[in-house]
Design a protein around this nucleic acid. Structure first.
Lengths: 194, 194
DNA sequence: GTCTATAGAACGATAGAC
DNA sequence: GTCTATCGTTCTATAGAC
């Protein structure tokens, strides 16, 4: 149930975002969305053509938010390494996982090009933005010249996404934190062996 | 539909494994399992108490299989680095993702301690086994002494699990391969800067 | 814009004949 | 062990009154 100060269509989108995050597309029913939004059957189908249409609105917003949150950290001050570190260490509700990455495990999202598009774009942009920062680190000599920017960007995003998997499996954020620390230790410039 | 040479209960388990992999627990109905297994309603409820019971049998088997597949590579010949590399590069149906890791995104699996247990065990054992190999690499001087075995193990597993997420988002295995190559480039012993 | 009523199908499970 | 019949609920959506 959301604030009465929000329009019905807003409440429907926000309720859908929450449910998609927690239960995925397959596990989210229009009925559950309506109840969470405090809206009737008729309202939902007045504002949206159906479940896929409502889900699309919700996914688009979540994807945009993810991009903004990443940019807030990656576009900040500091060295390339510091910004990558800030991205990896930024506050997260680890056990809830990533609201965007989560959708990639949903067969009906992946099967529908329209629903998959915002997911693909959000993760693609994140990788591209991280690759830029890595390139800065390569140019400045902060990171080993033997590294490939696109590859490292993919590794960074994968570590985060996979960290969620490990955390949810154990029911604790510990493995997520371990994975991140492990990656940071690998990225740390070593001027000499050992 | 599975071979008539398999018992009904076997066919039910195998069909469930396939459907859990593709559609998850929430998205898999007893009805769909029965059709895929070529078994009737009555047969399924004769052999299994219900959907959770059948899913448990399927998840246990998948988790065991994952452990065996990992051990086949990690317990093989070669240096620590070579075995980690072999694990990361081993043949995978990348776009299908990990049949175990996938379940961590399922709210009903995570909410049920009995269903979550085999998932937790499989990924926990994998991390522990990888940590052993990393320790060998640290002892032999193959890997930088500044690294922590448990952390690196978590990073390795996370990269794989997260790589699936990126691959499924784009519809291509390319980002998975990038993430793995990136991790390998970070793990590669560098005796001097650059 | 929102409501209630209704629809046909699928959900997960049980009962009881064979 | 397997079958068909049935159950009450939920799914996603449409219709039509207000």
């Amino acid at each position: 149930m959301y604030s009465a100060l929000m329009s019905t269509s807003e409440r429907l989108i926000e309720a859908t975002r929450e449910l998609l995050w927690e239960r995925g597309y397959v596990g989210t029913s229009p009925r559950a969305v309506q109840q969470a939004a405090g809206a009737g059957q008729g309202s939902m189908y007045h504002h949206f053509a159906g479940k896929p249409d409502l889900a699309l609105a919700a996914i688009r917003r979540t994807s945009e938010e993810m991009g903004a949150a990443a940019e807030a950290v990656l576009g900040g001050e500091g060295t390339a390494y510091a910004r990558i570190e800030a991205y990896l260490l930024r506050e997260r509700d680890v056990l809830r996982g990533c609201p965007v990455g989560r959708l990639t495990m949903d067969p009906e999202v992946i099967a529908d090009p329209v629903l998959r598009a915002p997911v693909d774009e959000a993760l693609g942009r994140l990788r591209a933005r991280l690759a830029e920062v890595v390139r800065e680190g390569l140019d400045s000599g902060e990171l080993s010249a033997s590294l490939d920017a696109d590859e490292i960007a993919a590794t960074v995003v994968s570590t985060v996404q996979g960290g969620y998997v490990l955390a949810r499996a154990t029911g604790s954020r510990a493995p997520f934190d371990s994975a991140v620390r492990g990656l940071l230790s690998l990225l740390t410039p070593r001027t000499a062996a050992g």
